[in-house]
């Protein structure tokens, strides 16, 4: 049975999205991508450092990956829109992860500005994947604004604290007719599996892989966990019974 995830007209077989930040050395990225099986890789847009000519991250990302530039650094919708346009001008596709953060303490996304940016960019033909705090009404508005998927956070970015927002993310999965991609906070493969088992369409992992002692092995572990969770979700888990047996029948009258 084929199980593909379609976003923005692209069919994805892997449901693990990979972030490319925080690696000790970028040259490990090709091995990480290969081990994880990821097809979508995020990158950030930055001013060229005039003092030291950085090596280009793109040289480390396999050409057949879908590149998803993020708008990190944006504090307002306007800044996110500007960054997204710059990213698209690089000629690497039209996907964008909107990330608007105006809170430096917890790094929580600004849903309101994110909705505004989504509306503008979806209107310009971008495939927009907004990173957001899991709130049902905000997610509905993002869907209405033209988002291609919704990316709620599992816990604050970079914390590896896991799926703390589980109940809220579950509501999004139930109510929003778009792929729900759990982004941020997933620290262990078991948590990725949990999100997938619950019905998330994909998960985005960066810190947990990049900061692992052996990023390549961890990437492989995440790839397997995402697949296992997805397979469990599709195979309709058996019943968890709430009670052993009914105390008094409610339908006895039908046979009287």
């Amino acid at each position: 049975m084929s199980d593909v995830l379609e976003i923005g007209g692209i069919e994805l077989r892997s449901r693990l999205f990979l972030g490319s930040g925080k690696f000790a050395a970028n040259k490990v990225i090709p091995d990480v991508v290969a081990a994880s099986g990821a097809q979508v890789v995020t990158v950030a847009v930055r001013r060229v450092d005039m003092a030291s000519a950085d090596e280009n991250i793109l040289t480390h990302i396999p050409k057949d990956c879908v590149l998803m530039p993020n708008t990190s650094g944006a504090r307002t919708a306007e800044e996110a829109v500007r960054i997204a346009r710059l990213a698209r001008a690089a000629g690497c596709g039209n996907w964008v992860k909107i990330e608007v953060i105006s809170d430096n303490r917890y790094l929580l996304p600004d849903n309101f500005e994110t909705i505004k940016a989504t509306e503008v960019l979806a209107g310009e033909g971008f495939v927009v994947l907004p990173y957001m705090s899991p709130d049902l009404m905000a997610a509905k508005r993002l869907a209405d604004a033209g988002a291609a998927a919704i990316m709620p956070l599992g816990s604050p970015i970079g914390t590896n604290r896991g799926l703390k927002t589980k109940e809220l993310v579950r509501i999004l999965i139930e109510e929003i007719p778009l792929p729900i991609v759990v982004d941020a906070g997933i620290g262990r493969p078991s948590e990725a599996a949990e999100a997938m088992e619950m019905g998330a369409a994909a998960v985005l992992v960066n810190t947990a892989i990049a900061t692992a002692g052996d990023p390549v092995a961890m990437a492989r572990a995440f790839g397997m966990a995402v697949e296992a969770g997805r397979m469990a979700h599709l195979s309709s888990p058996g019943a968890i019974l709430q009670y052993a047996n009914a105390s008094s029948p409610l339908t006895g009258f039908l046979s009287e």
């Binding site: 490319s20 930055r46 990213a87």
Partner: peptide, 10 residues
Amino acid sequence: LEIVTFVGGG
């Protein structure tokens, strides 16, 4: 003039 490029990011 703004000159930007891609770097690693999540």
